Simulated scan of single mutants.
Amino acid sequence: MLVHPWDAALDDAEWQAWIADGHDFGQLCVNGLPGRPPSVVPTHFTADADELLIHLARPNPVWEAIEHDPDVTFTVIGDYAFIPGPWRAQPGTEPTDGVPTSYYAAVQFTCRAQVVDDPEAKADLLRRQLAHFQPEGDHAPVAAGLPPYGRMLSGIRGLRLTVTEVLAKFKYDDHKPVEHRAGVAGRLTARGQALDVPAARQQARRLERLGPWRS
């Protein structure tokens, strides 16, 4: 993933806060077996210290590839929007001369995968995930040997992804003048399609922290 200086996370706390703010669905990317293309699996995940916790169905075809090569990538993308060319035209030029672009936030984790098959360990992984996704605790106990989850544990495998590197990108035209960035954020809010408003919030947040871009 190409990250220009103006697209980079301002610090680790920025991407960590973005992940914690409900960005808990991504794509697990696994090197393919010899002669096969890479495998990509969309899934929810839970961030736990320096690990990502995942579980997948046992019949998922990705397991053989992970066991062959446990070095994987997990990517989370969000707050994206298409920016039309006229919105980016230079002052004093024809609007049609503007060049369109995409805005988005992305965090890419490089990880070492460990498969979890022990029933008690899988139950612990599920408890950690449910504590994140159902913090109200409105579910039956998750324990090996106890219904309803106990009998289901054999149908899944867990993954602990130890994070070895993080690459974060917030692509919101931060190298452009303040007036331009504020104007685009306003246009996104007014258009209000899909993820326009979250993208505008990200642009406004970065604008407030950065102000005018300084290389």
Rank of each mutant, 00 (worst) to 15 (best):
H23E: 06
H23W: 09
H23K: 14
H23L: 10
D24K: 03
F25C: 02
F25M: 03
F25Q: 02
G26Y: 05
G26F: 06
G26E: 07
Q27N: 11
Q27C: 06
Q27W: 13
Q27G: 03
Q27D: 08
C29P: 01
C29L: 14
C29Y: 03
C29N: 11
V30H: 09
V30I: 13
N31A: 14
N31L: 12
N31C: 09
N31H: 13
G32D: 10
L33M: 08
P34N: 04
G35Q: 02
G35H: 03
G35W: 02
R36N: 02
R36E: 09
R36V: 02
P37A: 13
P37C: 11
P37K: 07
P37W: 08
P37G: 11
P38M: 14
P38E: 15
S39M: 14
S39V: 15
S39H: 13
S39Q: 15
S39N: 11
V40I: 15
V40G: 03
V40H: 10
V41Q: 09
V41F: 08
V41P: 12
V41A: 00
V41I: 15
V41N: 08
P42M: 01
P42W: 02
T43A: 04
T43F: 00
H44Y: 07
H44Q: 07
F45T: 09
F45V: 05
F45Y: 15
F45M: 11
T46E: 05
T46F: 01
T46W: 03
T46G: 02
A47T: 06
A47Y: 00
D48K: 06
A49Y: 05
D50Q: 07
D50R: 06
D50E: 12
D50L: 01
E51F: 00
L52Y: 11
L53S: 12
L53Y: 13
L53K: 13
I54K: 08
I54D: 05
I54T: 08
I54L: 15
I54F: 07
H55Y: 15
H55M: 03
H55A: 05
